[in-house]
């Protein structure tokens, strides 16, 4: 989870730079966002798998609710910001990238409280 959060941080810096330059994210940054989205997917699968192990008193539905939101954040941000040529589109994508570490932190807290 920490690694994914770090990747989101790097992507966020790249998006802030593009916002300042008033440019839409392109080529390399979009490829990197694809990598981040793929790593988020891996964490999601891992999060589901560990529910089948020793999960203590973790509230399963609350945990799953947050977990299943995570992989949709970045794709939703890319779709929603697509076609918006102003900084607002890039900022929407930035929000999507920043929501991921927040959700991962919530997941960590829910898991830690239950085990």
């Amino acid at each position: 989870m920490v690694g994914v959060a770090a990747l989101c941080g790097v992507a966020a810096v790249g998006l802030v730079v593009e916002m300042v330059r008033n440019r839409q994210p392109g080529g390399l940054l979009l490829d990197f966002l694809g990598l981040v989205a793929a790593s988020v997917l891996v964490v999601t699968v891992w999060g589901v798998v560990r529910l089948f192990g020793d999960r203590g008193d973790v509230p399963v539905w609350e945990y799953l609710g947050y977990l299943l939101l995570v992989p949709f954040c970045i794709p939703a941000g890319i779709v929603w910001s697509h076609g918006e040529r102003s900084r607002g589109g890039t900022a929407a994508l930035l929000v999507a990238v920043l929501v991921v570490p927040f959700l991962l932190l919530r997941l960590h807290d829910i898991w830690a409280a239950g085990t």
Binding site: W61, G65, C73, W80, E84, S86, R87, G88, G89, V95
Partner: peptide
């Protein structure tokens, strides 16, 4: 929904999904 409105709608959307999921879970359980 253009310009900064694009960002605002996305943030509202995130809160709509999160608040709906959270309140549904709370009320059901």
């Amino acid at each position: 929904r253009t310009g900064w409105g694009r960002t605002l709608v996305f943030v509202y959307g995130v809160f709509a999904v999160a608040a709906t999921a959270r309140s549904s879970y709370q009320l059901l359980t």
